[in-house]
């Protein structure tokens, strides 16, 4: 039987209250949202917080809100809500692509976007999604609010810039015209960690050339996006040879490890093939937006 080590439990009643509790209980306290990463780690005693601060009552952090040229998503928004949002699917189809393959439908009822990003598992899908969409993380702490680009938010596996006394409150996604995005993952079965995945976001100029592009990989040993691919794609007319070359660059840039999910060669092959597919799909979606 897997039971966590003893801890004290408290429910936060507001963001301010959560911050106060974090300050009061210090380094031995952890925030719990969906709990589908933290509780398994606590059961295995890999994590032994003395205090659990439950933020599930903070409904003010559960929202999807269009605000000018940004889409604001509360950190406590559940995976199921993101998957089912037609507004998100229209603006950022990559989110629906990714959400459909995150864990399983029952786990998605509990898990949250903020929890996934703060857990920062190398096989976590939404980090790649946020990277390629150029999202910003809104973090609140005792000193007030700070807004970080994803490149500054990530600090490596299981680490983020969110301090012990801070709370990730919101993600902001820039809305761009003539944009398309896509995500594709290979997993051994539903709910397993990814063998590998790729995400792409593309913005087209009025003449149909690629104005901006970002390619990211999940579980393939690459932090941040494939800079070489972005440089290659910018200013070019979308075409198959370009996607092939971007795939080659992604495969060269990644640094996968061999494990029970596959050898390095296979994972590099996935980086290549999945990059081609998501770029093809992202460009097709961007072109449809343009026609629309």
């Amino acid at each position: 039987m897997q039971i966590p080590a003893p801890f004290d439990y408290v429910r936060a009643t507001s963001v301010d209250n959560a911050l106060e509790l974090l300050s009061r209980h210090g380094a031995e306290s952890r925030v719990i949202a969906g709990g589908h990463s933290l509780l398994p780690m606590m059961k295995l005693r890999l994590s032994r917080p003395e205090w659990l601060i439950d933020i599930n009552d903070l409904y003010e952090l559960d929202f999807i809100l269009r605000d000018g040229d940004k889409l604001r998503v509360g950190a406590l928004t559940r995976h199921t809500t993101l998957l089912e949002s037609d507004e998100i699917a229209a603006l950022f189809p990559i989110v629906r692509d990714a959400e459909a393959v995150i864990a399983d439908p029952v786990v998605r009822n509990r898990g949250t976007i903020g929890g996934s990003l703060c857990q920062a598992d190398p096989a976590e899908d939404l980090s790649t999604v946020c990277d390629v969409l150029g999202a910003e993380a809104v973090i609140r702490g005792p000193a007030g609010e700070r807004i970080l680009a994803m490149a500054d938010f990530h600090r490596g596996p299981y680490e983020t810039a969110v301090g012990q006394d801070e709370l990730l409150c919101e993600l902001r996604f820039p809305i761009r015209p003539r944009a398309g995005s896509a995500y594709e993952k290979v997993e051994r079965r539903v709910g397993d960690w990814a063998v590998g995945a790729a995400g792409a976001s593309v913005t087209l100029a009025a003449d149909g050339t690629i104005a901006d592009a970002a390619v990211g990989l999940t579980a393939l040993g690459l932090a941040h996006t494939v800079a070489e691919a972005a440089g290659l794609l910018r200013g070019q007319q979308p075409r198959e040879e370009l996607f092939v070359e971007a795939g080659r660059l992604a495969a060269a840039a990644c640094d996968p490890v061999a494990d029970q999910r596959g050898p390095i060669d296979y994972k590099r092959h996935l980086a290549d093939e999945l990059t081609r597919r998501v770029l093809r799909q992202a460009c097709a979606r961007a072109a449809r937006t343009q026609e629309g």
Binding site: G35, L39, P40, K43, D104, R110
Partner: peptide
């Protein structure tokens, strides 16, 4: 015990949840 098998599913406010991974 690891939120994989789903035999412990109950409805919480009408939504299925894995009760081995909810306190």
């Amino acid at each position: 015990d690891t939120s994989n098998c789903g035999t412990c599913v109950v409805l919480m406010d009408g939504q299925p949840v894995k009760s081995c991974t909810v306190l």
